[in-house]
């Protein structure tokens, strides 16, 4: 039971972090990052190979690069860095000149191809079998299977959630976030007002990549395995569903959506009894995700918790008088 609850807790935390990142990219800035899961995977692989011992160990049954056996928190930090660094070339190719739906298909194709390459290039990250026996953070000092450790892991995950939420709120509530929203509404008009759209898109794309990388590290540190089958391109669509259901552009919406869609649909039902022929339940889940997206875009495109406009204190009646109240974004 402890294992079930803590697993659910870590998955929930990771999904919340991922949805917050996707909300910054897609919800706030209008970047259709269909390869989001690739950045999470990049973080997970990075954290894994930095935490794992050289691949000659454990009987050499898996093959991978590095195997640096670095102590926590270096693998996590590196995962975030790799997520961000990987965003740079991808963003520069995809986000500069292409129409928004071209951007989306370019990302989608990237997601499929990245998975294909990692699956087939076995010596790199152990191919289709994936990595296993990834050491949990600080497992050399603590018993990683004790309830205390498991709950502590959940706690750390939620601290990371809180941190990411704090950063996301700062961005969304700032003039920078306002300009990103404006870019989402009409990119050319923002350009004509003297904003460089490439800088705007690249910064938020990299921020999203950093957070995605971190989310991957947190997940792999707990489940200790990572394989191509865990980051197939449809996984990204679950996160999109969460952001759309929760409310594009609203961090609380992303939080709510993450708790409802990926956690509710995927993780909770994972432990429920199956019915029908094998594979029927997951297939129906995917159909439900699709219906959820289409249904919300049709009936409630702004989501359950719609984006809130910036609020400003009322103007003072006398023009030119000193402002008595803060007119800033609240």
């Amino acid at each position: 039971m402890t294992y079930y609850l803590t697993t659910l807790g870590v998955y929930a935390g990771v999904d919340i972090i991922a949805c917050l990142a996707l909300n910054l990219q897609f919800g706030v800035s209008g970047i259709v990052n269909f390869s989001f899961i690739v950045f999470q995977a990049a973080g997970a692989y990075t954290a894994a190979v930095l935490a794992l011992p050289p691949d000659s160990q454990n009987g050499g049954f898996q093959h991978y690069v590095f195997g640096a056996q670095l102590p926590f928190p270096i693998p996590w930090i590196a995962a975030a860095v790799v997520g961000g660094v990987l965003s740079v070339p991808v963003g520069l190719v995809v986000l500069r000149h292409l129409r928004v739906d071209y951007q989306a298909i370019a990302m989608l194709v990237l997601s499929v191809i990245a998975n294909l390459v990692i699956t087939n290039a076995r010596p790199f990250l152990n191919g289709a079998a994936g990595l296993s026996l990834v050491p949990q953070p600080l497992s050399d000092r603590f018993n990683a299977y004790s309830p205390t450790y498991l709950w502590a892991y959940v706690a750390v995950t939620f601290v990371c959630c809180a941190l990411v939420f704090f950063v996301s709120q700062r961005i969304v509530k700032s003039p920078y976030g306002r300009t990103l929203r404006a870019m989402r509404e009409h990119e050319l008009a923002v350009t004509a007002l003297g904003k460089n759209p490439v800088v705007l898109k690249m910064t938020i794309f990299v921020v999203g990549g950093v957070i995605a990388g971190l989310s991957g590290a947190i997940l792999v540190g707990f489940i200790t395995i990572w394989a191509p089958s865990t980051w197939l391109y449809p996984e990204t669509l679950i996160l999109f569903a969460a952001v759309i259901v929760g409310g594009r552009g609203n961090n609380w919406g992303a939080l709510f959506g993450a708790a409802l869609v990926p956690v509710g649909f995927e993780e909770a039902t994972r432990y429920l009894p199956q019915f029908g022929p094998p594979g029927l339940v997951p297939a129906l889940q995917w159909v439900a995700i699709g219906l959820l997206i289409i249904g919300f875009l049709w009936f409630r495109p702004k989501g359950v918790l719609p984006e809130k406009p910036g609020r400003f204190a009322a103007a003072t009646p006398v023009v030119g008088a000193r402002l008595t109240k803060e007119p800033g974004v609240s």
């Binding site: 129409r99 759309i244 995917w286």
Partner: peptide, 26 residues
């Protein structure tokens, strides 16, 4: 007809793609 932007249409078509695949699978 409702005026959904390109960004929405591409998401809808990907959702449709997954739904077809997963209706087909069982």
């Amino acid at each position: 007809k409702k005026g959904t932007a390109l960004i929405g249409m591409v998401i809808i078509s990907l959702a449709a793609s997954l739904m077809i695949a997963n209706v087909l699978l069982p």
